[in-house]
Nucleic acid binder design. Structure first.
Length: 928
DNA sequence: CGCCTCCAGAATATTCTGGAGGCGGTGCCATATT
């Protein structure tokens, strides 16, 4: 670590002990904060010798830091007995927590809360103490108090993090971690210890980007802190800040290692057998890298999550086991088009043993297909997750002997399951009801957090899946981001890039209307462009024309892409920030499948992030909607505990079908109801003549209950028929289908309703729902911040993606803009450009430090700016821009490390130039 | 951001103006109608 901190302060323990009390305290505080505990103790000893009063909280912290936990606690308890105040109490609770003595901590905590019920840090400690005692409800209510008390405080975020983490929900926990980090960047600082804890958390959850952010923040903080402490020690003779690296306070325990991505050993004989099958069945000469490991693990019956890049031959990973082993392989696929492509691309001999079940089939075709499956003539079945709501379908698949459950495009489970296609969250139940066969989840994009979510949603556990990760680096993709000032420049850039790049490409835009506008502009510049989104009626036609090369540029929403296999896409342009980093990687991943150089440019404005954050913040689910849906269900089920609820009812209550079903899923998650398998709405039954089924006691009993005799028929609501039996709805439907298969009964089922059991409302249901909405929002906002961070980063972009997506890290790719690759378009056009605006902000700060609000008012020429600000020569320099835009400009300068926030002693925050910012503002014509 | 819509009030009895507010995208299944 080099020189000790005392040496870096140019002082000694004796000298510190002889200082005035406040200064001694300040220095010791500094030493403890940066974990120079031995130095701190030496100073405290010297101070005691010099007759200074004791500093129990700091003393104890230093003792604890050196491993003398018992002595530290003892010290605090003694000084508490002598009437010490809040800081000692807080420290004591913290130390008892660290010493894993939560019961003793509780004692002091109660006392603390009695004295300072308005102290958010105390409530935060309460959350931690309750968690340490394993008392989740108490932790929950402490968190509620905390949130009510100080919703915007870092403790609210940290408390939510701790709670979710303790409950095993790392995904949501990470979202709150990011929130804490983000909050503290603006208003109040996270303490060094809290930053270190957060860093340990992000290390454990495999999030190197946030680890890097925290490290950078710690280093900056240390340098500032050292300079300030020095200045305080040695008067105003301000020594130049040393650029010493911050000592890296290490987490006390080593972070648990994240899931490793090692494949099973594939022995030579196994590999030969697999390659022989691949050759015989599919005509492939050999296996691609990664395939053998996945296939081997699948054949051994392990649960596998395979994250393989596009073009790595994912389908073969499950098709090979499907056709070389026994039983049926069921593939859950998100899109009908994908299922069809997969089946169509199979070799002839295999295609006869594969089938895609979808709503494109009519009733007769569906029945034929199910019969074939039940008869064991089919090895590979494709279906959408929604299909798994039908117990009849599950029964048929189980009957044929389900060998494995494959989840294709498995990221959809996490990305869509929570707010768009809730039936992805029903997979776990369906998997269990199918006898819990081995699961094989396949995707090209799943950052560690999504991997954990997939695992949780499919198996309800963590660590049960073997995770196999291929190399996601695509060296032929030239990645770049361009910051633009306004819409004019944005359009100009799009046209310029689309025109400069040979070959065909995709422009991703954020709204349907925008797609149409951009396509129109491109056509006006002589580019063969067409728009594509879910609202046009000739989607297939547009796609075909693009595939054939008649259209060279598709301007599309996110609707375009999954399953598009065009090998020579030369460029991907993003008109504005995409939804998330994963989404971005998916979208650029569609370029250059042929391995040729392809250009991917993300065009964004400072406005984009704020706008997306606002959208995410609003969320699409509201408590009001949830109440309406719940009310509608209560009405539909009536006094009975279980009811048959037409989904139209849910749709009507929610205003839209997706929202309605998502609401159902949320109500189910908090325990207000249980949604069972869907049931038919109406049934008509007919008993064929000369029926041998009457010899079967179960069937005979059923006939009697239905009042059926040998030749009669009956029809009616499924619910009414059910009431005459002693069966569960799933049971009755399965019996009916079985008797139909046996030829004892002709069955006609029509319509489908949701079967909903209303449960006794848990006391916490309301606040749980509120929390789910808040969690969702935090997660969505985090995703926005991540992609905005990617757009602004000055580090290698491929490296950023590798970090984010959990791939193999590379230092420099050499092919992105931050690694020096240049774009085939001129740098920046003239005019009152961004540089001039950014420079005005920097120069204003070069005059003196300003607060955030005042700086914005100053630049905007707002008369509400302070007197002094109005005197600045930059007053009104950005008069033509709005305050919001200026605020965002300032934030982006901060993100670029040109300016930084400094906390003042009285709690205020001012912005000032960093050394980079000083250089940049002095240089005049900076580059960006 | 910048554009659109909505609304209130003004200038004149229906249009004009200004300000404020809002802004999104993905697909199954089923059922009813063409």
């Amino acid at each position: 670590m080099g020189a000790s901190l005392l040496e870096q302060l140019n002082t000694s323990a004796e000298a510190v002990g002889a200082l005035p009390v406040e200064l001694t305290q300040r220095v010791v505080d500094f030493l403890v904060r940066w974990e120079a505990h031995a130095d701190a103790l030496a100073c405290l000893d010297a101070a005691a010798r010099a007759g200074q009063p004791p500093l129990p909280a700091l003393h104890a912290a230093a003792l604890h830091g050196l491993g003398h936990a018992a002595a530290a606690i003892d010290l605090l308890e003694r000084s508490l007995a002598q009437g010490a105040g809040l800081p000692v109490r807080l420290t004591l609770v913290e130390l008892l927590l660290a010493a894993e003595a939560p019961e003793r901590a509780t004692h002091y905590l109660d006392d603390l809360l009695n004295r300072a019920a308005g102290l958010s840090r105390a409530w935060y400690l309460a959350v931690l103490v309750h968690l340490a005692r394993g008392d989740f409800p108490a932790a929950q209510s402490a968190l509620d108090r905390l949130v009510a008390l100080a919703p915007e405080s870092r403790y609210a975020s940290l408390g939510a993090l701790a709670l979710h983490r303790a409950q095993g929900d790392v995904v949501t926990a990470a979202a709150y971690g990011a929130q804490a980090l983000n909050r503290s960047a603006r208003d109040e600082g996270l303490s060094v210890a809290e930053l270190v804890q957060l860093r340990a958390f992000f290390q454990a959850t495999d999030d190197p980007i946030r680890v890097r952010i925290i490290n950078e923040r710690l280093i900056a903080r240390f340098n500032r802190d050292l300079a300030a402490t020095r200045a305080a020690l040695h008067g105003a003779e301000e020594a130049p800040a040393p650029q010493a690296a911050a000592p890296e306070p290490a987490p006390r325990r080593a972070a648990p290692t994240p899931v490793t991505a090692t494949g099973p050993e594939v022995i030579a004989a196994e590999r030969r057998a697999m390659e022989e099958s691949a050759r015989r069945l599919f005509g492939y000469p050999s296996l691609l890298p990664g395939q053998a490991e996945v296939v081997a693990a699948a054949l051994r019956g392990e649960h596998v999550l395979a994250v393989l890049p596009t073009g790595a031959g994912k389908s073969l990973c499950y098709q090979l086991p499907a056709f070389s082993g026994a039983g049926v392989t069921l593939v859950i696929s998100p899109l009908i088009a994908l299922m069809k492509d997969q089946v169509d691309n199979l070799p002839d001999a295999l295609r006869r043993q594969a089938i895609a079940i979808s709503s494109m089939m009519d009733g007769a075709a569906l029945r034929r297909a199910l019969d074939q499956i039940a008869a064991g003539q089919i090895r590979l079945v494709y279906a959408a997750p929604e299909r798994l709501r039908q117990i009849g379908f599950l029964r048929v698949v189980a009957q044929a002997g389900l060998a494995r459950l494959v989840i294709d495009e498995a990221h959809c489970v996490s990305v869509w399951g929570h707010d768009f296609r809730p039936d992805y969250l029903h997979l776990r139940q369906a998997h269990r009801d199918l006898g819990a066969p081995p699961v094989l989840a396949m995707t090209a994009t799943a950052p560690p957090r999504v991997r954990q979510d997939i695992e949780r949603q499919l198996l309800g556990t963590q660590g049960a899946m073997r995770v196999l990760v291929g190399d996601i680096f695509r060296p032929n993709l030239q990645l770049a981001a361009l910051r633009v000032r306004d819409d004019d420049e944005r359009i100009h850039r799009l046209v310029e890039l689309a025109g400069a790049q040979k070959g065909c490409g995709i422009v991703y835009a954020r709204s349907r209307r925008r797609c149409e506008e951009v396509a129109e502009v491109l056509r006006g510049r002589g580019i063969r462009a067409a728009h594509y989104h879910a609202g046009i009626d000739n989607r297939d036609e547009v796609q075909d024309r693009f595939m054939r090369g008649e259209v060279s540029v598709i301007v599309a929403t996110v609707a375009f892409g999954m399953g598009i296999d065009k090998r020579d896409i030369r460029f991907i342009l993003h008109d504005g920030l995409p939804n998330s980093v994963e989404g971005y990687y998916q979208e650029v991943g569609r370029a250059g499948r042929d391995g040729q150089h392809s250009l991917c440019v993300l065009i964004y404005g400072d406005y984009d992030e704020g706008s997306l954050l606002r959208l995410a913040g609003r969320g699409q689910m509201s408590l009001d909607t949830l109440r309406k849906v719940y009310g509608a269900i209560q009405q539909a089920t009536g006094p009975r505990a279980m009811g048959f609820v037409p989904l139209d009812v849910v749709t009507a209550a929610a205003g839209d079908s997706t929202t309605g079903r998502v609401a159902l899923s949320m109500l189910e998650q908090v325990g207000l109801l249980r949604r069972r398998y869907d049931a038919p709405r109406t049934v008509s039954l007919q008993v064929p003549r000369r029926n041998r089924g009457v010899d079967d006691p179960a069937f005979f009993d059923f006939m009697q209950r239905m009042g059926l005799d040998r030749q009669s028929a009956v029809a009616g609501e499924f619910g009414d028929l059910l009431a005459r039996t002693a069966m569960q709805p799933e049971e009755l439907e399965q019996w009916l289908l079985a008797w139909q298969a046996a030829g004892w009964l002709r069955v006609d089922l029509a319509g489908r309703d949701a079967v909903i059991e209303l449960l006794d409302p848990p006391a916490r249901a309301g606040s749980d729902l509120e929390r789910m909405i808040a969690d969702r929002t935090a997660l969505d906002q985090q995703r926005v911040r991540d992609i905005a961070d990617f757009a602004r980063t000055r580090h290698c972009r491929h490296g950023y993606l590798a970090d984010y997506l959990g791939g193999h890290r590379r230092r420099r790719c050499g092919v992105c803009d931050n690694c020096g690759a240049t774009l085939p378009v001129p740098a920046r056009r003239g005019g009152p450009d961004f540089d001039a605006q950014a420079r005005a902000a920097l120069l204003a700060l070069a005059e003196q430090a300003w607060g955030r609000r005042n700086l914005v008012r100053l630049l905007a020429g707002d008369p509400a700016a302070s007197e002094r600000a109005q005197q600045s020569s930059y007053y009104g320099a950005l008069r033509e821009r709005t305050p919001t835009a200026i605020g965002q400009l300032v934030e982006s300068l901060e993100a670029d490390g040109l300016i930084s926030a400094r906390e003042l002693d009285h709690g205020g925050v001012v912005l000032e130039l960093t050394s980079r910012g000083r250089n940049e503002s002095a240089r005049g014509k900076g580059r960006r």
